[in-house]
Design a protein around this nucleic acid. Sequence first.
DNA 1: CCTTACATGTAACAAGTTACATGATTAG
DNA 2: CTAATCATGTAACTTGTTACATGTAAGG
Lengths: 186, 186
Amino acid sequence: VSLRYALLAALHEAPATGYDLTQRFRGRLAHVWSASHQQVYRELGKLHEEGKLAMTEVPQTDKPDRKLYQVTEAGEEDLRQWLATPQPSPATRDPLLVKLFAGNLLDREAMLAEVAQRRAETREQLGTFRAIEREYFADLKTVPMHFRLQHLALRRGITAMQASLGWLDELETALREGENLCTHMV
Amino acid sequence: VSLRYALLAALHEAPATGYDLTQRFRGRLAHVWSASHQQVYRELGKLHEEGKLAMTEVPQTDKPDRKLYQVTEAGEEDLRQWLATPQPSPATRDPLLVKLFAGNLLDREAMLAEVAQRRAETREQLGTFRAIEREYFADLKTVPMHFRLQHLALRRGITAMQASLGWLDELETALREGENLCTHMV
DNA sequence: CCTTACATGTAACAAGTTACATGATTAG
DNA sequence: CTAATCATGTAACTTGTTACATGTAAGG
């Protein structure tokens, strides 16, 4: 149920359109929450219907009109209540880890390629997170509370990516070592 | 689409019933994949219908009969093909991180309570993972390949939990410090 | 000419959650 | 008497993904 609250929180920060929100979920908020534009538009529609969001159409020439959403009092109250309710930790579901349990069916070369790909993705993510850190959290002196918490959230993303890279190295080493030990990975 | 392959991989390791698989997803495999018993039974039914799994009913006295599943050749081929296909990295979706973006709506006491709860859950998970490590991976000398890879998967879970605990400490510190700086968290 | 950015959506499907349902046995 | 473990499922719902649909403008 958290998508709606992710939207409410993001709109509480600053009013935005569905398009903007989709961008945020792929940029600054990628380590926090993710959603496709279809999900975003659908949920915004629902929230608006329920009176949790107010909508203003902003006409544009040359480009399609924008629908700017902002949180209503009802929406704020909803968000406040959700904030007060402890949320369960998210479940882990990583297909790469699943593969490690396939034993002798695993193909070393394919795995090495996948590890390389995963590493590239992870490095890129890490790069964007660091760029965000430089852009938004350069001055660590002037720290209002909400700023510090957002920075902490970002640090979580950064350390997670770093840990991931370290682990991928270990995995690669193990896969390469195996080459000398046995032809079929049994 | 990965649930079916998580099931095929788990059944390739050792034939099992839906009940067994559900237990595995909550125990040894919790850091790899998770699924509720409803999901497991549903997917097993489909896989069996499609001929990817063979099923044997094992009558029991005193307890309900068991339905033991094992991977067929068609299932193995399917799994092999999936293994050869690179899978996307999983998206992050953590409601606790969402909360950090709610700014002035956030209630410090509620957050501290939630952090404490999350820490307790994480510590427990870490405990079980370590127990598994002691039980299954005590002798690091005798290492067949598939064993090493499973150990690596487990190490991933363990280090993730440790990193999580460290971060929760940082978060708690930040929340407490804020108390001295401002009454409302703006 | 082709792709990217801007900006919105619908429809169908797959995956995951929640609630309900049954029924015996064992341990506190 | 109550709860937990064993063992299976159905039904309804919510969430997330994939494919399809439209239309302009700018940049390489």
